[in-house]
Amino acid sequence: MIKELIVVEGKDDTAAIRRAVEADTIETGGSAINEDIYRRIELAQERRGVIIFTDPDHAGEKLRRLITARVPGCKHAFLQKEDALYKDDIGVENASPEAIRTALANVKTDFNPAESEISWQDLIEAGLIGHPQASQRRLEAGKLLGIGYANGKQFHKRCRMFKISRAEFEQAIKELAKRGL
Rank of each mutant, 00 (worst) to 15 (best):
E82I: 13
E61K: 12
V21R: 04
I51T: 09
I67K: 00
S31R: 07
E175W: 05
E117A: 14
I51V: 15
R158A: 02
E61P: 04
Q171N: 15
L63Q: 05
I52E: 01
F53Y: 06
T102K: 15
N151D: 13
K178A: 11
R160C: 15
G127H: 01
A23M: 05
K62L: 12
D13V: 10
V7A: 01
D88F: 11
L5G: 02
S135A: 11
E27Y: 04
D55N: 13
H76Y: 09
S135Q: 10
V71N: 00
Q133L: 11
T25L: 04
E35R: 12
F111E: 07
F162P: 02
K87R: 15
E140K: 13
N94C: 08
F162H: 10
D88L: 10
I173S: 05
Q136V: 09
A84M: 08
I124C: 04
I147D: 06
V21E: 06
V8L: 05
N34P: 10
G146A: 10
T25W: 04
G49W: 00
K11A: 13
A32H: 14
V92L: 07
E115R: 09
T109D: 11
S135E: 06
F53W: 05
T109R: 12
F162A: 08
T102C: 11
I51Q: 01
